[in-house]
């Protein structure tokens, strides 16, 4: 990570979003620096995934802007937006593999659709990506035959298939056993180092956040209440953050 003059690559400004009168995001400002892994933490249903989906134009703000490399998403034509999306990869919460396709077809779809590469070339690239996530040799399996952790790995291979500059992770470890979750965390860190990408992850798994984050942002009631390094967050004296990161039932927050 370049710490001298961090270049801001994704800028979120005063982002607001409501669903049916319920305010989910209430003026969010975030700067994402090139090469870092930013982790957004917060309780379930606090709007973390909603925020992530705004960054890639799957949802549109009621107010405020999202800019990628200085370009505001909402002002783009659909062609320009698709151009930006090609530089993104996303790991969805439940993997979101296309269940009518094999593992190889899932991972190779973007290559088949957007490049003129031959089947053989695509097969080689797919094999390489699967190897990166430790899923080599599973090309002909169907998503239904895979366990939760394997699905996440394949989904990660699919997310990096087009060599993205940015990867978004939506709850990368949710629903996985601790060992598999640990392996996914290692994979995220390893891929970040090897592929030189900028990553944004949302999670409520603090173990995962500490392991992968360069910086952590805490989202609470539609606002950001603190931004800092994992150490700064760990040593925060904000009672809400203290309660959240330590998983305490007693405190300013109530269990839902």
């Amino acid at each position: 990570m370049n710490t001298n003059t961090p270049q801001i690559v994704i800028e979120v400004r005063d982002l607001r979003k409501s669903f049916a009168g319920h305010v989910v995001l209430d003026g969010i400002d975030i700067d994402v620096r090139r090469g870092e892994t930013l982790v957004i933490i917060g309780r379930s249903g606090c709007g973390k995934s909603v925020l992530l989906k705004h960054i890639i134009g799957l949802l549109w703000p009621d107010g405020g802007t999202v800019a990628v490399e200085g370009q505001i998403l909402a002002r783009m034509s659909s062609r320009e937006l698709y151009g930006v999306r090609l530089r993104f990869g996303m790991l969805f919460q439940n993997a979101a593999l296309f269940d009518s396709m094999t593992v190889a077809e899932n991972v190779g779809l973007a290559l088949a659709e957007h490049t003129r590469k031959s089947r053989g070339e695509i097969a080689d690239m797919v094999a390489h990506k699967l190897e990166l996530v430790g899923m080599q040799g599973t090309e002909h399996m169907m998503p239904a035959d895979l366990s939760g952790g394997m699905k996440k790995r394949v989904s990660l291979a699919r997310a990096i298939a087009f060599d993205p500059a940015y990867i978004l992770f939506d709850e990368p470890t949710t629903g996985l056993d601790p060992i598999t979750a640990g392996a996914i965390n290692d994979l995220i860190v390893e891929l970040g180092d090897r592929l030189d990408v900028t990553s944004i992850a949302v999670t409520h798994d603090m173990k995962s956040a500490y392991k992968i984050a360069d910086r952590i942002v805490m989202l609470h009631e539609g606002r950001i209440i603190q931004t800092g390094t994992p150490e700064e967050i760990q040593n925060s004296d904000d009672p809400v953050i203290h309660q959240f990161i330590n998983g305490l039932a007693e405190g300013p927050l109530r269990a839902i």
Partner: peptide
């Protein structure tokens, strides 16, 4: 495909 985010996944892959 919609509720399991597969349609979102297509969008993210820049496939209309």
């Amino acid at each position: 495909m919609r509720v399991t985010e597969q349609i979102d996944a297509l969008e993210v892959m820049a496939i209309d």
